[in-house]
Amino acid sequence: MNKRILVTLHGSDVAPRFDLATEIWLGRTGGRNLVEEERTIVLPHASAEELCHLILREHVDVVICCGIEEEYYEYLHWKRIEVYDSVVGRRRDVINAYLARTLRPGAVLVPRDE
């Protein structure tokens, strides 16, 4: 599985909103289903349009985010990009779940405090 993955970040967690994310994690998975290459990019400002451009420019295959508007979701889907939205959790846990093929849209990978 050789895929380029993008996670919108807020600190070390998935950002609550795609359009307000100012940091992203970009990684590439290799043949042994491990992250072979990764980097974190701080964006000059939050913008859903510019983030979509970056996703296309970087040839991203998979986007993992939390809240995303239908317009951008459909656009990315139309560009044949797999989008896992409404995902809550730490970036590391989310990537591990993706690599283990257990990640689903709406996945909550944090303990719930009552």
């Binding site: 807020h10 609550p16 909103r17 939390c66 809240g67 809550v88 709406g106 944090v110 009552e114």
Partner: peptide, 17 residues
Amino acid sequence: EARGLHCMYVMRSSLCP
């Protein structure tokens, strides 16, 4: 679904975080 989650992941408001 919402109970126990940080409110910014439920409200997902432009004010968060």
